[in-house]
Amino acid sequence: MIVEKYSLLPEYNLATIFAMDNILSTQGIMVMLLVAYGLAMWTFLTNAPKVYTVMVSDIKIAQKFYEGLLKLNAADIPLHYYYTPTKNISTPATVDPLHMSVDYTSMGGMDMDTKYGLWYQLKKNTQLHIISGASYGYNNRQRHVCFDNHCLKTILLKIQAKRLRYKVRCKQPLNFLVKDIDERTIEIVEVKN
């Protein structure tokens, strides 16, 4: 008895799959474009730097601290991070009002160089974005507020590497004090959501 093999799908071999007329068809071109787009997006997103944001009481004093004392290099704004800061700052309901200024979206009185914040290269593929918005601390202390513990630990390591005077007040959430060039006390605080 002879048994015949039947298949509902036609048999394809590599020659028919990669035939020139299949590749140059509308479907073939669309598949190639989608694959190229996917590879381009994957490359772009894997090479995009990690960005940490720190809100500060006074952006000019913060600039002296991060550039003058910590010697961080200025960085370009990453392409994936273009936005208007006043639209993306957390609302007062999600942030402890103790750390936020009364008018947290105000950018008045700033020149164009600092209006959208300062950008620094923190590590090879990590950037630090400094924006205004934090309230002053006890005795008009400069306050730097961040939501990310890893960011503050990295800043603390930079402070330790520069042998600056500092004092860790609390480890969870991280809170420490450091003196700037003009002997002002800067309080760096992690805010928990």
Rank of each mutant, 00 (worst) to 15 (best):
V54N: 02
F65M: 12
T53S: 01
W42E: 13
A48E: 12
K115M: 11
C170F: 05
D21E: 06
C151P: 00
I17G: 04
N13P: 01
N140V: 00
T53R: 09
V191N: 09
D111Y: 06
H129A: 00
L9M: 09
E67N: 02
G117D: 08
P97N: 13
A19C: 12
I17C: 04
G28Q: 15
L98N: 10
L8I: 12
K5E: 14
L118D: 13
V145Y: 01
N88L: 04
E11Q: 00
M110Y: 07
L128T: 05
T126E: 14
V145N: 15
E183Y: 13
K179Q: 05
I2S: 13
M30N: 15
Y82P: 01
S25A: 05
A36F: 09
T46L: 09
L98S: 00
A15W: 06
I77L: 14
G68K: 04
N88P: 03
V189E: 14
V31C: 07
L156K: 00
T154Y: 05
D103L: 06
H99E: 00
P10D: 08
Y120H: 09
V3Y: 10
M110P: 05
Y136F: 07
G137R: 04
Q63C: 06
A19S: 12
Y12H: 09
V54T: 06
R143K: 15
S57A: 11
L79W: 09
K167N: 04
Q27V: 01
G117W: 04
I29L: 15
K124Q: 11
C146E: 06
I89L: 15
V189C: 12
A62T: 08
S7T: 15
V3H: 01
T91Y: 12
A15E: 12
P10T: 14
S25C: 07
N22G: 09
D103Q: 14
P173I: 06
G108V: 00
T26E: 05
P173A: 03
S135N: 11
L152C: 05
M107E: 07
V189Q: 08
G137W: 05
